[in-house]
Design a protein around this nucleic acid. Structure first.
Lengths: 145, 145
DNA sequence: TGCAAACCCCACTGGAGAACCGGGGTATAA
DNA sequence: TTATACCCCGGTTCTCCAGTGGGGTTTGCA
C-alpha cells in the first residue's frame, strides 16, 4: 500500500464529494481542487480512475461534474486506495514466486503486515472520516480556519 | 514501508547470516547470493547499507566476509527494513504539512495503518523466522527440496 | 443553431527510486 | 607477493509519481 500524495488526493476528493452527497447536484473538478488545494489537471486523472473503478460517476457537458456512486458509509478508504493504485503490481522484481523456503516465509510476514494495514483502512468509511472531522470542528471551531 | 524485492533480499541475507551465526567465520557475498538466488553485485550494495546501519559487520581481505553484528533474536525484521530503506522519506508530494483539516485526518489514518504494519514487523526477529522455517522443515521435510 | 462549460483522452516532462552491471581501489591471509 | 574479498563510485534501464498541456466530445442553455 502506497499511502502517497496521490492516494491522499483521491480520498480528499471523495470526502469533498461525500460532503455534498445529499445535494444531488454534481461537483466540478475546479471546485474540488480549490477546496482541497489539489492541482486540477492532476485531480482530473485521479477522478477518471475513480470513475473507472466505479466509486464515482460523472455528468458530462455544461453543469456537469462528479458525484459519489454510493453512499459515503458504503465506501471504505481501502476501496479508494485499491482503486487508485490498483494497476500498480510493481513486480519489477523478476521473482514472481519465491525461490527458497526462506523467501516464502519472508513473504508470509510481508502479507501479514499488509493485511494488518488493510484491516485498518477497510474499517474506515468516508462517513467515518466526515464524522471525525465534524466532531473535531465542534469541539474546537477556531482551530482550523 | 516498501516490502519490495530489495527488502526481501536484505532479510534473506540476514537470515543466511543468522543460520551461520554460531560458526564464527564470516560468510562471503557469493555464498549468500548463491544460497538465496540474489544477484551478487546487488547484494553487495545491500550488505553495505546493512553494515552502515550497524546490523552486520564485515571482514575485509582474503577469507573475509560478513557476519551479524548482534544475535539473531536481537534483530527484528522492522530494523532491517528501516535500515535498508531508511533514506527513503518519499515526500515527493510538495505538501510537507496538511493544508486542510481533512488532510490532517487522512494522514492520521495513514499513520494508524503504518503503525499497525510496523507492529507486526517489529514483533518478528531473525530467530523467529529461523524457528518457523525449521519447524516447517521438520513437519514436512520433503516439501522443499 | 451556436456557444461555452465541463468532462474525456492522450502525450509529455522531470525527478526519484528499483534493480541491476562494471571498473577500479584497498585490506588481508597465506 | 598474490589471490581473495570487501569497498566505492558511476552508469543503465525501467517504472512510477506529480504534474502540465493540447485537442476532442458531450451537454445545457440562450
Amino acid at each position: 500500500m502506497e499511502l502517497s500524495c496521490k492516494s491522499e488526493y483521491a480520498v480528499l476528493a471523495l470526502l469533498e464529494l461525500a460532503a455534498h452527497f445529499s445535494q444531488g447536484e454534481p461537483l466540478q473538478i475546479r471546485q474540488i481542487a480549490a477546496q482541497q488545494s489539489i492541482p486540477d489537471r492532476y485531480l482530473e486523472q485521479l477522478l477518471a480512475t475513480l470513475r473507472r473503478g466505479g466509486l464515482v460517476r460523472s455528468q458530462r457537458g455544461a453543469k456537469g461534474g462528479y458525484y459519489l456512486a454510493r453512499e459515503p458509509h458504503n465506501i471504505t478508504v481501502l476501496e479508494a486506495l485499491e482503486c487508485i493504485e490498483g494497476g500498480n503490481i510493481q513486480q519489477t522484481c523478476p521473482e514472481d514466486e519465491p525461490k527458497t523456503s526462506e523467501s516464502a516465509i519472508v513473504r508470509e510476514i510481508w502479507q501479514e503486515a499488509r493485511d494488518c494495514a488493510h484491516a485498518i483502512l477497510q474499517n474506515y468509511t468516508l462517513q467515518d472520516l466526515r464524522d471525525r472531522h465534524d466532531q473535531r470542528q465542534d469541539v474546537n471551531p477556531m482551530y482550523y480556519i
